[in-house]
């Protein structure tokens, strides 16, 4: 494999140049692109953590966030609480959920072929989204919050500011995890498991416990995101699904194990989508960007893999 850092640097450089040009031309594209990128990255980073260390493609990732959003919604309705206060409780509850899910299902499939793992998490995704569908039907739920509609006017430019919170979370996640994995003992052990489970076991790391811990941590992160996501978006059973695919695409673009790289990849996706959204004629095609991007990324990786 070519050094993923080098590629990220190139991507980041291109992104910066493009951003400056765009900022002069259509400032809202950059602003909304940045906000979208923050949302994508903060959901993708926990999935990247699982893929990098537990080596499982968790196709139920977005659905798990959706479940967290539903739980938060009903907790907030019942207690009259603000979803922002629910972030930490949601994360804790989802950590337990993730741990149980790991022990019951994922653990048993770790040694199985990759296809089994893929189908297993696919099954979990369906089970989760359909259970919610079963209980709450496909009706949408939305919280009305004043602070979400706050906006800023600069000259003739007016845009919402609340979504910048996702950018902050994404940066916090990326660098918090980097700190955790390289500076703390537990984190180093987890990183060792990710790099070489066998070697980690030989030097006395409990691989199974580490996997469970990392899985729980990642689910906690996405659970907290579920609460935060609720502030901005209406929720319905299939709201999480697209984020699974997007997250996977972003991880594949950044390279497995390169968590800060996900930030750059998200920026590319967020801005390209918003360029198409900026024009009436191309607006409907914004959804396709991502699927084209995922294919281009995977294809170019496979070509590169064959050359080396």
């Amino acid at each position: 494999m070519m050094a993923p850092k080098q590629r990220t640097a190139i991507l980041a450089g291109l992104a910066v140049i493009g951003t400056i040009a765009l900022l002069a031309w259509k400032p809202t594209v950059v602003i909304y692109g940045l906000q979208a990128a923050g949302l994508y990255a903060s959901i993708a980073i926990p999935m990247g953590l699982i893929l990098g260390i537990v080596h499982i493609v968790n196709l139920a990732h977005g659905e798990i966030m959706m479940v967290a959003s539903y739980a938060t919604y009903f907790a907030c309705k019942a207690l009259g609480m603000d979803p922002l206060l629910a972030i930490i409780p949601a994360a804790l509850v989802m950590a337990v959920f993730g741990w149980v899910l790991f022990q019951l299902t994922i653990k048993r499939a770790l040694k199985a072929p990759e296809l089994n793992q893929l189908i297993l998490t696919f099954g979990i995704a369906i089970a989760l989204s359909q259970s919610i569908n079963l209980i709450f039907t496909s009706q949408t739920y939305k919280l009305q919050l004043d602070y979400v509609s706050s906006s800023i006017d600069i000259g003739d430019l007016s845009f919402g500011t609340w979504s910048f919170v996702f950018v902050a979370v994404a940066i916090l996640f990326a660098y918090g995890l980097k700190y955790f994995l390289t500076k703390t003992t537990t984190g180093k052990a987890a990183l060792a498991v990710g790099q070489n489970p066998r070697g980690a076991a030989i030097v006395g790391i409990d691989v199974n416990r580490m996997d469970a811990l990392v899985f729980g941590l990642a689910i906690a992160m996405v659970g907290g995101m579920g609460a935060l996501f609720l502030t901005k978006s209406a929720i319905f059973p299939s709201v999480g699904g697209p984020f699974t695919m997007k997250s996977f695409c972003l991880i594949a673009m950044a390279g497995v194990g390169n968590i800060p790289g996900i930030l750059g990849a998200s920026l590319l996706l967020g801005i390209s989508e918003n360029i198409l959204r900026a024009f009436r004629d191309t607006r409907a095609w914004a959804d396709i960007v991502f699927f084209v991007l995922i294919i281009v990324v995977i294809m170019s990786r496979s070509l590169k893999g064959r050359k080396s």
Partner: peptide, 11 residues
């Protein structure tokens, strides 16, 4: 949500 059965069967 009757498809939940499918998810559980797959798992």
């Amino acid at each position: 949500g009757h498809l939940v059965v499918y998810g559980i069967i797959i798992i």
